[in-house]
């Protein structure tokens, strides 16, 4: 379970202070599929980054399975990112000069998985995302949809229970978006907690629950079948 309690994050842009996340308190259950929506600049990405420990809070606490991650030291934070979360970004954040295989393997190398197990794990996960035939191709040669599937493979290869997807379909056409959404649904079915940031209301409707942000505050939080624009 993920519990956010009065989480705040403020950025300084020039002279101005921007409250990107403003006293947000939330509870997200295990194996919940949550969509986060809101206008651009409403604080969705910031919220994701805080939950994934890619950024630090100014105040408040984020408790993940009983551990307050805002109080962890750098080493434990790394461990948390490694074991608990898988990130998927709109901009992929892959290594363009590495092959598909190596991009996924990086995550296993960091986890110190023995080399003889790495190959099997990578091939397995590439099969899941439908890219086993491309494993020797450099990422720079792939299409956007394929890249995002590599990113998903990398995010799930270490079997993290929480998947954080920040507009994963933002750069993709509807066909590829559909593929990615199907993958996320499958992951949800296999027991992952999924937090998805999206602009697309249809994608958001795939989730169990939709949270709408405005100016860093939660303005709506309800089951997806009740949610209407």
């Amino acid at each position: 379970m993920i519990v956010l309690d009065n989480v705040c994050r403020t950025f300084r842009i020039g002279e101005e202070l921007v409250k990107a996340v403003d006293h947000i308190s939330l509870k997200i259950n295990d194996n919940e599929f949550v969509a986060v929506v809101g206008r651009s600049g409403s604080g969705k990405s910031t919220l994701m980054n805080l939950i994934g420990a890619l950024d630090h809070v100014d105040s408040g606490s984020i408790i993940v399975n009983g551990t307050d991650i805002t109080k962890l030291n750098n080493r434990d934070l790394a461990e948390y990112r490694l074991k608990s979360t898988g990130f998927i970004f709109q901009a992929f954040h892959l290594e363009p000069l590495y092959t598909v295989y190596d991009n996924v393997r990086i995550a296993l190398m960091i986890a110190d998985i023995p080399p003889r197990l790495q190959k099997e794990k990578v091939i397995n996960v590439l099969k899941k995302v439908g890219l086993e035939s491309k494993n020797g191709v450099k990422v720079s040669k792939l299409s956007g949809g394929e890249r995002q599937r590599v990113a998903i493979a990398r995010a799930i290869v270490n079997d993290a229970p929480i998947i954080l997807a920040d507009e994963p379909c933002g750069n993709l056409d509807s066909l590829n978006s559909g593929l990615i959404m199907d993958l996320l649904k499958t992951l949800h079915k296999y027991g992952k907690t999924i937090i998805l940031v999206t602009h697309n209301i249809n994608d958001a409707k795939c989730a169990d629950r939709i949270i709408e942000l405005k100016d860093g505050r939660v303005i709506r939080d309800e089951a997806s079948d009740l949610f209407s624009i």
Binding site: G52, L54, N74, R75, A78, E79, R81, L82, K83, F87, H93, E95, I106, A107, I110, A111, R154, N158
Partner: peptide, 15 residues
Amino acid sequence: SFIMRLKMLGATTGN
């Protein structure tokens, strides 16, 4: 940015 991507995946800065 590569170092930060490694960190995102769970590497420590020391690594």
